[in-house]
Each structure stands twice: as structure tokens, then as C-alpha cells.
Design a protein around this nucleic acid. Sequence first.
DNA 1: CACCAGGCCGTGC
DNA 2: GCACGGCATGGT
Length: 246
Amino acid sequence: MEELREILTGGQSFSWIDEGDCFSATLNEKVYRVRSIDDFRADAFLYGYFDLDFDYDGARAAIAAKDDVLRRAVDAFPTLRILRQDPWIALISFILSQNNNIKRITGLYHALSKAYGHEVEKGYWSFPTPRELSRTSIAELRELRVGFRDSYIMDAIDKADILAEIPALDYHDAEARLMGIRGIGKKVANCVLLFGFHRMDAFPIDVWIRKILDRYYPGVGLEHFDPYRALCQQYLFSYARYLDLD
DNA sequence: CACCAGGCCGTGC
DNA sequence: GCACGGCATGGT
């Protein structure tokens, strides 16, 4: 359980619910209930989703050797991983995330699922596809309490086909293409690239990353974190929240 | 009452 | 190009 908590409820995915004795999520037309990373080797979907082919031990060692801050971050979150989430789910999730907190983002994610997804198991709804979500309206989105993000979601539905183009594009073109959707700026675009496309050249800079960069890396370019730039970002994000930098 | 949350948009300079 | 206020909502 605890080795998964930061991964599943720490702000990279909003699909997972803490059920007390397990974490649950409705993905891939099933309800998954998980307790430990070791449970995932026999399931093809979870194997890919949890990025089990990647050598995290090797990457962690290289990252920890870069500087003391990263070493402490890695030590504080030894089981952290970057999930391989669905691009559309990541897109809407991180539209919901702007100027919002993790608890409420998770609530909105599941409100959209219940309203427009389909019930896979009693009490568990899939996240709506673009086609399913297209049945919504500005008024209905407001009733679900998404606030000013309503028009952003509507534009994302209209432009969902953009996601199919992203894998063929280099970092800058992919980022620019995503930023053509209303409500997607540099930060959200990088979250979609990282969590939805597993792009290891992405580097979302949110309020927490901003704080830790300003405090511990003044004047340092992002090349410092290569070749594990995206993974460094995730360790630093968790560590900054853990330290509660002010 | 204030300020904040995995920000972005429109405006003004 | 950069600074700034506004924006929905719920929590502290």
C-alpha cells in the first residue's frame, strides 16, 4: 500500500481511490484493485501502466549522484514511478488540475466518469471517451462544479484528434500543438506529454517545482537533470511537497 | 475575512 | 516580450 500511495494519489494520476485496504481505479474497461507493485507482473495492462520494463534502480542511482537535493528526494521516495496513462485521460485530468488541488481534481475526475462514462462494475465508472464526453455542455459541466474550466473541456473535446499526432512530433512541436487547445499552457502541456505520452524530455513547472528550483537550483538550466529530466522533476515535485517549502 | 490549490487568459505596456 | 488581475470552487 504505502509504496504505491505517492505514485497513485500524489498528483500524477487522479484515477485512483484509496479504499483503505487497496487502491482502486476503473481503467481498460476493468476495475483494478492494487496493493503492491509485485502484484502487477502477471497482468499485461498493469505491467505496462506501471512501467515495469524501465530500470528504476539504475535511474535512481544516476539521479542520486547528481546532487544532494536529488539524493534526498530519491531517498524519500524510493518507489516513485512515472505511470503510463492514457493521453485523453491525462489531457482532461490536467485541464481540471489548473489552480486546483489534488483532492478536488480527483473529485471532478470521478464526477465526469459517473456522469458520462459507463458503469464497468457496480459503483465504478470508466472515464468517458471523447465521444462519450461530447454529450456534455457548458451548463452541465458547470453543474458538476468544474468552474471556469468548462470551455477548456469543450475545446479539448473538439480537438481530441490532436492527440493522435503527438507521438510523431518532437518536444517543441508537440508542446505547441497541445497549447493550441484552450486552457492548455506550458505547464499542462508538459503534464500531458509526461503522464499521457511518457515523454522523458517533458518538465512541468508548477508552483512546487518553481519553489524548489528557486531555492536549490538558482541559475541552473534544466540540462542539469538530463538524461532523466522528467523523472528528476517527479522526484523534486514529491520532495518539495514533502518539505512543504514556503 | 484572507489566502491557496500540479494555471491560463486577456489586457496593457 | 513581461506584469498583472480575474477566474469557479472548496478547503484552511
